[in-house]
Nucleic acid binder design. Structure first.
Lengths: 224, 224
DNA sequence: CCAAAAGTGTTATGTTTACACCCATGT
DNA sequence: ACATGGGTGTAAACATAACACTTTTGG
């Protein structure tokens, strides 16, 4: 038995990784500068062509390692871009992923075989990107916002704890609404979503703020 | 420019449609019986190979039309099956979809060019299916349950209204927990998630039950 | 001692839970 | 008249929303 219809063949796939971090309450994404054609010299999301004998997740992790040398992080598949004209060479799907990391605890290479630079960009200040990556990034940002609000994805980013004003700012900026400081604190504490540590750290004010950690025992639920 | 690495090519994709309905509070899925090799004579989900020049959603709707003659329904993409050995001919992704329809308002063909039968099956009584469709169906059932609880996907299935005991049964069976009848009713009514009509209909009891409809004005939210 | 952000408490309102009795119908 | 499921009310516990003052630090 064989495939005779050429319409059934001639497809390929990219994996695209949107790697985010949060710095002082602001969301940033990791971009790399390409040193190969096409789009040589353009900023782009971490991405590349998938092999036909590997799993999507494997490819997403492999490309991340090749383009940034980051490994051992969790990636979440968030959707497919199936525009038929993404690539002039072949029908290419894009399998899109989200990663969220603590920028202080992660090292990445500024240059690799395929990249000539890499850096964090505030999501409100994104340059023109290669391919359809601006569109993909917009999609991923929306997904990230939903995930922050309805699952404890933030756990991935604060292995060493956080202050309440810090995540308060994250929630307000991702949800685009004001949340009363006092009620925010009360909700997270009375529902035991976060747990007190005995440390303090200075966030934005002069007065040091208490450090908290997420309660790993609790299931994900929508917060606001 | 051309693709030289053969690992980047030789991929294809199936679309797989899991079409559900709810009959007297029980969830059922639409299966077709294949009349072509491979798996001739086996029950299977509605599915088929995607063309390399169409969108995923287009392919999902086209296959549904070809295999059942159903059209004009809403399909929701819920995920990708990327096992490398799904097909012996080619690396084939499966783009999985969910549809939810009112079985009383939908007509489908028992036989088409590629099918020799079609019927609703209770999800607790599923035969062995072609390909990896049992696994895909299990995945889709879990997604459906989540969607029933956290979005108003049920709207798609009750264009003519429903009774509270009827959807109460759906929620209890999809969530796998008991929900107090009185509190269930109160919640849906006070939050105006459902609206009274002036009709009544007999569900399971002897006493006719009031008919309600979903409130289209309200945004989706997690109910329980 | 002042500015800037962190921390705390109370009251009113809405939501959820637990629970028991009556009602309309078919047999 | 009775069995079966449908419909209703109330009180306690809990969660949310609105709101103002005190505390700790750096400059």
């Amino acid at each position: 038995m064989e495939l005779t219809n050429p319409l059934y063949k001639n497809m390929g796939a990219h994996v695209v990784d949107t790697i985010f971090t949060i710095d002082k309450g602001r969301i940033k994404v990791l971009l790399i500068k390409r040193n190969n054609e096409p789009y040589r010299g353009s900023w782009a999301l971490v991405s590349g062509a998938m092999y036909n004998n590997e799993l999507i997740e494997t490819a997403a992790l492999r490309e991340l390692k090749e383009k940034t040398n980051i490994s051992d992080i969790e990636l979440t598949f968030i959707g497919v871009d199936d525009d038929t004209d993404r690539s002039p060479l072949l029908r290419m799907f894009a399998f899109i992923h989200i990663g969220l990391v603590d920028f202080q605890n992660i090292k990445f290479l500024k240059e690799t075989e395929k990249t000539m630079d890499a850096d964090w960009f505030d999501i409100n200040d994104i340059p023109e990107l290669a391919y359809d990556h601006n569109k993909i990034l917009d999609y991923a940002i929306e997904k990230l916002k939903t995930m922050i609000n309805s699952s404890n994805i933030l756990k991935r980013i604060y292995p060493n704890g956080f202050t309440i004003p810090e995540i308060h700012k994250v929630y307000e900026s991702t949800l685009g609404v004001e949340i009363d400081r006092r009620n925010f604190r009360k909700k997270l504490l009375t529902q035991k979503i976060i747990l007190d540590t005995n440390e303090t750290i200075t966030f934005e004010g002069k007065k040091p703020a208490k450090k908290y950690i997420f309660n790993d025992e609790l299931p994900d639920k929508k917060l606001f």
